[in-house]
Structures are given as C-alpha cells and as structure tokens.
C-alpha cells in the first residue's frame, strides 16, 4: 500500500480496539474501517484519505503479532513507512477523458442527457430545457463485457491464398484466426464473445483483430500495385528475352522487348494486392510492376570489351542529355 504513516498515535485507539484485543479483532476492525474510508471509495475526500492513512499506519504497527510485540515494548520504527514504487491512488488516474477504464464504462451512455434529466429541473432548467423530467438514468442490469482490440501482422501472400493462424492473447486465451482471401489492410476481424467477461449475467465482450498486411521482401507496395526491381543482362536488354520473374504466387514467364533500358516498367496484370474497386465495389487485385535494371557482368568479357572498343568511336552518346532520356 502506498501509504505514509501518520504522526504516531495510539494505534489501538485509532482502530477502536482494546489493548487486549486478539489479532483477529484488530484485523477485523482495520478492515471494517478501511473499507469505509478507502480513498477509492471516497474519491477526492481529503478527510477520508487522512483517516485511511491513520488506519493504515496503525495497522502497520499492530497488524501482526511481531510488530505488535515491538510496539507494545516501545521498540518500533516511527519513520514513515512506504511500500515500493509509490504513485497515485487509482481514482486519481481516472480523472480525465483519457482514462481508459472508467471512460470505457461510459461508452454508449450520454452523460449530458443523464445529468440533464436527473438535475436539470432542480437547477431551474439551467440549460433552457423546460417541461417534464425525463425518466432517470438507464438501469444497469446484465452488462456486456469489455471489447478488446489487437493488431496482427499478416504476410501479403496469406491474403491471396487465405490461411488459418493461432494467436495467443495477453490473457492466455488462444484464438484460431482465419485470414480470408482478399482481406484488406486495416480490416478488423471480430470474434464474438471472446473478450472480457460480462457482468451480472451479461454476455462476454468481443475481440477485434485488425489486420496489418506486410509486403514480402524485395517487393514494394504502391497502392494496389506491387513493385519489383528486376535485374537483366546487357544482352537481354539489347536483344530482348523471355525470363522467369518471381511474383508473390510463384514465378511467371515474361517477355522483355528488345532495346529495353534500366527504368523500363513492365506490367503483370492481376498479381498485385487486393483493393476495393471504387466503381463496382468488388475486391480486385492490382498489378505487379517489374522495374528493369541492366546489370553488367561482374568480370568484363574480353570479347565484349573489344567489341565496345571497336564500335565506340563514332557511336558515343550522352546518357545525361534530354535526348537520351526520352529515348528510353
């Protein structure tokens, strides 16, 4: 307990017990009064907080036979006792709109209407509302438990084929999550009744798992298209070729036209990411964009070098000029 012991008083008097009281009587007296004066049951009451500190201090002194013996023979530590860590009382953390626990209670409750209906007339219709009072606030019968939200990272490939995953929640509960084909980034999967337990016979809350899609290595996602930088040889660039290109669903054959240059983009339709078509509303897949990149051999072929040496005079060009850029 984060309590500073108050100025030493007679703990027996503070707790309202005789000096001859048994340990059980002392504990019961402490519990009875502590429940009454606990700051979390009297939020904001300095008197209750002071009284509670007195009680806690007294109980520290005589709450166990060992401490009580020390106190009775005058051998006790009068220094304020403090448990590790410190920090506010719980109610002190629940004072603002950002308080997660108490504000989650208020979801679906219009506090403005509630107080207006309870006190509006008593204040002479302070907000200008006249007429009969509304019925008092909603009665709290069985209540649904808290909903819980989590995020789950999913490989893009799994959104194409669909997959089933087991996930373990912080509570230790295991959920079997079926990733449906075509699930979109940010989609939330709902698991009814898997959240916090209900109260007074109410149903359990739900679990929501938000899907965060991750593109595979080497691929870059741009909207619904997937971009892949793809190396080709000088010969393939000049002469054209048919090459095997990886997609997220395995390899496909693709034709590289003759005279292709670095930076040229070739499109493989329907091998991108699912997205919702704005016209039809259907889920359709984008494309894979293959970005060509000419790569020279690591060690230069002497015959190639000789050929270039032979043809270079009279055939030089400036790749940094506008003309050469537009030629690509």
């Amino acid at each position: 307990m984060t309590i500073l012991m108050a100025t030493p008083k007679n703990p027996y008097e503070t707790l309202g017990v005789k000096q001859s009281a048994t340990q059980d009587e002392i504990r019961n007296a402490y519990r009875k009064q502590a429940k009454k004066h606990h700051p979390d049951l009297n939020p904001g009451s300095k008197a209750a907080e002071a009284k509670f500190k007195d009680l806690a201090g007294a109980y520290e002194l005589i709450g166990t036979p060992e401490e009580r013996t020390k106190f009775d023979r005058g051998d006790f530590d009068q220094a304020p006792h403090q448990q590790p860590g410190g920090g506010p009382f719980y109610y002190e953390t629940q004072n603002g709109p950002g308080a997660r626990y108490s504000q989650s209670f208020g979801e679906g409750v219009d506090a403005e209407d509630l107080f207006e209906s309870l006190f509006g007339n008593a204040r002479g219709g302070a907000r200008g509302r006249g007429g009969p009072r509304k019925p008092s606030g909603p009665e709290k019968g069985p209540q649904k438990g808290n909903d819980e939200s989590y995020q789950m990272q999913v490989d893009l490939r799994d959104t194409i084929t669909g997959v089933e995953r087991q996930i373990t929640l912080p509570s230790g509960k295991t959920l079997s999550v079926k990733i449906p084909v075509g699930v979109l980034d940010g989609n939330k999967l709902r698991f009814a009744g898997q959240g916090g337990p209900g109260l007074s016979g109410g149903p359990a809350g739900d679990v929501f798992v938000e899907v965060k899609i991750k593109a595979p290595e080497n691929f870059t996602q741009k909207d619904s298209d997937l971009l892949l930088e793809f190396p080709i040889s000088l010969y393939e660039a000049v002469l054209g070729a048919e090459v095997k290109v990886p997609t997220i669903e395995g390899s496909v054959m693709m034709k590289i036209p003759p005279h292709a240059n670095t930076g040229k983009r070739l499109r493989i339709p329907g091998k991108g990411v699912f997205h919702k078509d704005p016209v039809s509303g259907m889920k359709v897949r984008g494309d894979q964009i293959v970005l060509l990149k000419i790569v020279l051999p690591k060690s230069m072929d002497p015959e190639l070098e000789a050929a270039i040496l032979k043809s270079a005079p009279g055939h030089s060009y400036n790749p940094r000029s506008e003309e050469s850029e537009s030629a690509a």
Binding site: Y30, R31, P43, Y91, Q94, L114, F115
Partner: peptide, 27 residues
C-alpha cells in the same frame, strides 16, 4: 491482501468503481 476481498468480488468492485469514477468526472 489487506481488505480480504476474494477473487469473485474483485470484478464487481472494479466495475462499480469505474462506474463511480465515470459518473464523478462526468458530473
């Protein structure tokens, strides 16, 4: 540990305290 509340009563007390805090701040 100090007030002798058992596991069954904890969620009820927490719920009532959250309700109390919500109403206190809202009022």
């Amino acid at each position: 540990t100090e007030l002798g509340v058992n596991d069954d009563a904890i969620p009820i007390i927490l719920h009532l305290l959250d309700q109390l805090n919500y109403i206190r701040v809202s009022s």
